[in-house]
């Protein structure tokens, strides 16, 4: 594997918010032109990992390199240059509420390019058509349903045709039809334009169908990695537990807490 083919590299990252350690030595690599799936129980820090990759937060120890540059050492201007090459779909959409759907999708183009209005219009409508919301162009974000808002956010993330796309839970709150469309969209962006993709998702089935590599995070570390097929074959009990979805097993379903029984019995005034 040539180093140039690695778009994102995470090496030995330790990260804690306050006293709560989220990553304890995380290692990960994203190959150029591949779809990399990141899976893991809720609250393991998948969104946090994306923040580290985008340079929104900085790890206390370890290195995060994106496009060959160490993210932590970048100045604001260089960081912005790097971010222009990446499209990010937020877990909650994060549309700008004072702009219409059309203007939301047009926003990155207006900020970073000097396209004439007709070209810009065509581009935006094309992206809205891909997510099936061309008819909603003039609505305001408040008039959209949750799933529609996420699809608009997706159109906004791809409007600059970025080299890398990061999706934070793209399938949550979507009906089966839209889900299928989005899965095919991620796949075709990847196959046709060679867009490197990182997809954070719980939908083991959907994501296994399209991912080239996958990482399973748990307890601040990578618990398993490999192609989805390898992961499914993996015999470790914890991996099997996650892939088949049972609460009892080595992966804790609960956020760290004192013993349930003791807490119920404990008197508040004791």
């Amino acid at each position: 594997m040539i180093d140039d083919d690695i778009v994102v590299e995470v090496r030995g990252v330790h990260y804690a918010i306050g006293t709560h350690a989220i990553f304890k030595g995380l290692n990960m690599r994203v190959r150029r032109g591949a779809i990399t799936a990141v899976m893991g129980p809720s609250g393991t820090g998948k969104t946090t990992l994306l923040r580290l990759i985008m340079g929104q937060s900085v790890a206390q120890r370890g290195h995060v390199t994106v496009f060959g540059k160490e993210v932590a050492g970048l100045e604001r201007r260089e960081l912005y240059k790097l971010r222009q090459r990446v499209g990010l779909l937020f877990q909650n959409g994060a549309l700008l509420t004072d702009l219409s759907v059309f203007e939301n999708v047009a926003f990155p183009l207006r900020e970073h390019t000097d396209l004439p209005e007709p070209v810009l219009r065509e581009l935006v409508l094309m992206k809205l058509q891909t997510v099936g919301l061309r008819g909603a162009a003039e609505l305001m974000p408040a008039e959209l349903s949750g799933g529609m808002a996420r699809r608009v956010a997706l159109a906004r993330a791809i409007v600059m045709d970025p080299e890398m796309l990061i999706y934070d839970e793209p399938f949550v709150g979507l009906d089966p039809i839209s889900k299928g469309v989005i899965v095919r969209l991620i796949q075709s962006l990847n196959r046709l334009l060679g867009t490197t993709s990182i997809v954070v998702s719980h939908d083991v089935r959907e994501i296994s169908a399209i991912a080239d590599d996958s990482y399973l995070l748990a307890e601040g570390k990578v618990m398993a990695e490999g192609s989805p097929a390898e992961l499914c074959k993996e015999q470790t009990e914890s991996v099997r537990q996650f892939m088949s979805g049972t609460p009892d097993g080595p992966v804790p379903f609960h956020y760290p807490a004192p013993d349930y029984f003791e807490q119920l019995l404990a008197r508040p005034d004791a």
């Binding site: 985008m54 912005y80 990446v86 994060a94 700008l96 926003f107 990155p108 900020e111």
Partner: peptide, 8 residues
């Protein structure tokens, strides 16, 4: 944060 991520 979304603006930051869009390099604005």
């Amino acid at each position: 944060a979304a603006m930051e991520m869009m390099a604005v």
